[in-house]
């Protein structure tokens, strides 16, 4: 693919709202890794009131609004956040499931390899993992009607592929690689945690001042 085609392909992916990483879109990721390409794409996006951004760990690129306070952008951002919140519990449960299934393994991140058979075997051996899978299958993110663990896990993995968190590799359909969308999720979670911490702190301060007033 030549540079012009790569530019067009990369911009198209970015405008489609894709999160570009080395796992999901290798050539576009490599293209954006070069500073002058990054600047060229960013300059183009700025002309249409968008901006090129990357996750904190620099593992993924995505498009953000240039003027987030503008009404339509603000509305879209808040709608998008609601969608994240809608699936947040399920995604956290999946991360916990991976941790319970592979004790000592690093938390799931871009490039982590998952084998359905290994997960299933770990789930069968751990009641905690079994419970997590059952909860996930019942939740709105997966919503599986399967009655067996294999069916539930298959649907779960399929949903994660649909939402861009995993890519399927090989012909077996049971071998997956995590994308850097997890990095984006971790960034979002970090902000929520910090913000919630701030809120708790505020509540604490308000309580303290109320108590002082009473005294």
């Amino acid at each position: 693919m030549n540079q012009t085609t790569l530019f067009a392909e990369t911009v198209r992916l970015l405008l489609e709202g894709r999160i570009i990483c080395a796992i999901s879109h290798e050539s576009s990721y490599d293209y954006l890794e070069q500073d002058h390409h990054f600047q060229a794409v960013d300059e183009f996006l700025q002309k249409i009131e968008r901006k090129l951004a990357r996750t904190t760990d620099h593992k993924a690129f995505f498009t953000v609004y240039l003027i987030p306070n503008e009404d339509s952008a603000d509305k879209a951002i808040r709608n998008q956040f609601k969608e994240v919140v809608l699936h947040l519990e399920s995604l956290v449960k999946f991360l916990s499931l991976c941790r319970v299934s592979q004790p000592g393994a690093e938390p799931l991140s871009a490039g982590s390899v998952l084998y359905e058979s290994e997960l299933l075997s770990a789930i069968e051996q751990s009641s905690a993992a079994q419970q997590l899978l059952d909860d996930l299958a019942k939740g709105r993110f997966v919503h599986s009607n399967a009655t067996d663990g294999k069916g539930k896990l298959k649907t779960l993995m399929q949903r994660l592929i649909e939402h861009g968190y995993l890519v399927s590799v090989g012909r077996s359909g049971a071998h997956y690689i995590a994308t850097a969308k997890w990095s984006w999720l971790y960034d979002t979670m970090s902000f929520i945690q910090a913000h919630e911490g701030y809120q708790e702190e505020q509540v604490q301060l308000e309580t303290d001042s109320a108590q002082q007033e009473m005294l």
């Binding site: 405008l15 709202g17 995505f62 953000v64 984006w184 960034d187 902000f191």
Partner: peptide, 16 residues
């Protein structure tokens, strides 16, 4: 919240 982190400013898909 007025100041959101970059991750949350992600633009919604723009269909061409």
């Amino acid at each position: 919240i007025m100041r959101l982190p970059t991750a949350l400013l992600k633009a919604e898909p723009w269909i061409l």
